[in-house]
Design a protein around this nucleic acid. Structure first.
Length: 422
DNA sequence: ATGCATGATTCTAA
DNA sequence: TTAGAATCATGCAT
């Protein structure tokens, strides 16, 4: 502060000199003549030296005298006006900038991710949904989810503490500058508008720092998301029960393994997975089955027998109950929703003789048929009158590249069951 | 470490 | 939009 005061005093001293010269026609003339300027500069330097020799009290007194000069406010106000009209008006045009779209984007994103919003915001809910959609067993996903939330909370905490720091630093700096300018406004013309502008400039500088913080926070969240919620990374095998349910459906609908939306929903519910996962599973299953029927033969046999037994049990129960109701209603292996007729129609159209089977029975029939052929057993079932032992070549979905029927697999030795029914 | 199994994604065609 | 096909990335058994 001492230096400043001294400097200002020095400046006022110079100002005093200048003022002494103003309006003196002689001085102008003097400067025009050669040799005179050096003389003046010498004088000024001498005076400066004299100022530095002044005591602090003297300087203070001079400053005070200047501050109390009756013309000072008027003079400063005029000078401020001139300043406004010249320098500041040039800059003023570009100063009223609209809210930065970049920072708005970042804000929105942080809000969506639950970083900048309320504590238990939509971000974690979105994360939960994403984690659930990513699949895996519920336990696993909940573990992953809590881990994800912990990390997100960490990011959030860092973000907020940094933001607070920036805001504090910003307000501190602003206050400091404002005080400084107010102090200086006593010794040089500074309009309140100018202070305002200075504050705005400071805020802009700090907001650009804030943007960097927001940007890096967004990046951190993105990385976290991709690491924790990227489904590919998080692939978990479905549990045994789910796979069993899906396989059961697949092999019992082998002639047309395209579950309807309702069936998919039911399967998803049963397996504790999403509908899209069911779709993925069937997509993968169909293509892999088709590519290598031989490899899936054993599995097909297994599920065929299993479903056939179930079906037989259900039929037996139904007949025992002497009820005309649909035989598979309420059975664990039944998918009544899916029997909307597509398979049935397919069977009818492809089987020249026409089948006299009610649609809900078709899967069991399908399975029974296959079981009969594949295992060489269950002949008693095939002759039960429920089913006519013609191979129903309804599984045309396999036709494109491979021999069509499950009952006549191309590869495996030992299973030379040619489709005699054809 | 390696190879196979498997769920998910992406691209294409219908 | 959906299924098929290819591919990726991970899980798991060896």
């Amino acid at each position: 502060m001492d230096d400043q005061t001294r400097m200002m005093t020095g400046l006022t001293g110079l100002g005093g000199l200048a003022q002494a010269d103003v309006g003196d026609p002689d001085s102008v003339r003097k400067q025009q003549s050669l040799g005179q300027p050096q003389q003046d500069i010498g004088d000024i330097l001498q005076q400066i030296m004299a100022i530095t020799d002044e005591s602090l009290d003297e300087a203070q007194a001079r400053k005070h005298a200047l501050n109390c000069h009756r013309m000072k406010p008027a003079l400063f106000s005029v000078l401020c006006e001139i300043k406004e009209k010249t320098v500041l008006s040039i800059r003023g045009v570009q100063e009223e900038d609209p809210p930065d779209p970049q920072i708005m984007r970042l804000d929105n994103m942080l809000l969506a991710e639950g970083v900048s919003g309320p504590e238990k915001g939509g971000g974690s809910a979105a994360a939960a949904a994403a984690a659930a959609a990513a699949g895996g067993s519920p336990t696993d996903s909940s573990i992953e989810h809590s881990d994800y939330r912990a990390k997100l909370a960490q990011i959030r905490q860092i973000y907020h503490s940094e933001l607070e720091k920036y805001e504090q630093a910003c307000s501190e700096f602003t206050n400091h500058v404002m005080n400084l300018l107010r102090e200086q406004s006593r010794t040089r013309p500074i309009s309140p508008k100018e202070i305002e502008r200075m504050v705005a400039i400071i805020h802009r500088k700090f907001s650009s720092i804030q943007m960097q913080l927001k940007q890096s926070t967004c990046e951190a969240v993105m990385i976290l998301r991709s690491r924790f919620l990227d489904a590919r990374r998080k692939r978990r095998n479905f549990n045994k029960q789910a796979t069993e349910v899906l396989n059961e459906y697949f092999y019992s609908h082998l002639s047309n393994p395209y579950p309807s939306e309702e069936a998919k929903e039911e399967l998803a519910k049963k397996c504790g997975i999403t509908v899209s996962q069911v779709s993925n599973w069937f997509g993968n299953k169909r293509i892999r089955y088709k590519k290598n029927i031989g490899k899936f033969q054993e599995e097909a046999n297994l599920y065929a027998v299993k479903t056939a037994v179930d079906a037989a049990n259900v039929s037996a129960q139904a007949s025992q109950a002497n009820s005309p109701a649909t035989p598979n209603s309420g059975s664990p292996g039944s998918y009544s929703l899916s029997h909307t007729g597509d398979t049935y129609l397919g069977l009818r159209s492809l089987n020249g003789e026409g089948l006299n089977i009610a649609p809900p029975l078709q899967p069991q029939v399908d399975t029974l048929h296959r079981a009969t052929h594949l295992t060489g057993g269950y002949e008693e079932l095939s002759g039960s009158g429920l089913y006519t032992p013609h191979r129903l070549d309804a599984n045309s979905w396999q036709d494109t590249t491979n021999p069509p029927s499950v009952t006549s697999p191309p590869g495996p030795p030992g299973s030379v069951h040619s489709d005699t029914s054809n």
